[in-house]
Amino acid sequence: MSLTSDDVEKVALLARLMLSPDELESMTAEMQQIVGYVDQLAEVDTTGIEPMAHAVELRNVTKDDNVAPSLPRGEALANAPKHNEEGYLVPAVLGD
């Protein structure tokens, strides 16, 4: 299947990226090439094969629900590009 630049633009929105016209062009070509390469997986017969999501078969790991100190708020906020004493600051979520 072939990927169009429209498809790539939609994926960019989903990925919360924004591509310049030049980037869109090269990204489309590169993705076409790479997706074309991975398309070879289609030739493998995987009937009845259980997907393997993880290298070790996972079981649920639980721990006792003990109260322990967590990262102090000041330290948790320290790396934020914009914050006040209480929380993260972001542009308006609804409208302008």
């Binding site: 994926v11 990925a15 924004m18 591509l19 980037e23 972001v90 542009p91 979520v93």
Partner: peptide, 25 residues
């Protein structure tokens, strides 16, 4: 929206081409 545009611009300005490629793929 201003928030979505902030996400998109921040990520696009700070990630390099290979990271973008893998996120896109």
């Amino acid at each position: 929206t201003p928030l979505v545009r902030m996400y998109r611009k921040s990520r696009s300005e700070a990630f390099g081409p290979e990271v973008k490629r893998r996120i896109m793929l």
